[in-house]
Amino acid sequence: MGRIWLQALLLVALFFGMYHTLRQVDWVNLLEIRETADKTEKKLGDMLWSMFRKSDREVKDKLVTHSLDSILVKLCDYNDIPEENIRLHVLEKDEVNAFALPDGHLVIYTGLIAACESPEELAGVMAHELAHIELDHVMKKLVKEIGLSVLVSMTTGSGGGEIAKEVARTLSSSAFDRQQEKEADIAAVDYMAAADIDPEPFGEFLYRLGGKSSRMGEYLSWISTHPDSRERGEYVISYAEEKTYEAGPVLGIGTWSRIREQLTAGIPASRSSQ
């Protein structure tokens, strides 16, 4: 009997020994798998962004884009996120929505900016979407809901337009799973605290819009696609209380007021103000 156990142990050791040895090789780089995956993600991101750009007008107003860029740069710089990998786009639409697309595209609707009462709230939403990008939630969600083979076929030209629309709809108007949303919320608080931006307004924003979601239905996509907003608002605030930071201004009060005024008045999407 002892001999059998010894032989079993030998086989198990052989199996795990071989597995451990093979794990030491960087197969992903050796076989250029990462490169292929990155190319697929880039093509997918460009394809989806061009669809959104065609259906809604992109805001080019420099006051808006520069201000949002400065928030993004601050979040990236303090969290060692390469800002050149993030492509920020503002689209003119009343919907309160923001979402991430593959290859680092971060899309924000003017309706969401208008719904924010302070630049800190907007920074919270941006940090949340940035976290989805950094934690690779976007591709994981697409693979889970659409399937890897369909995504690859889209980028090689054999995928139909209907599939591309379905992918766009999945990313802009359906939630990530509960665990991923929580991960992104927590990471957003971390990003904000590291950048010395007060994270509590982000929690208040979630809490406030969570209360409005039943009344304002279709315009509050970001909240309706991010369920349990009140509960999330509460844990974001309690997690933010544990963090230490020296909250500084995200944007000048005058800048934020002017952005709000412009959005209320309606921005000519293609205008380029200095």
């Binding site: 798998i33 994981k140 697409l142 693979v143």
Partner: peptide, 10 residues
């Protein structure tokens, strides 16, 4: 990997 993770690892 095909239906959830989407990433091939070492």
């Amino acid at each position: 990997i095909l239906f959830r993770e989407g990433r091939v690892t070492n």
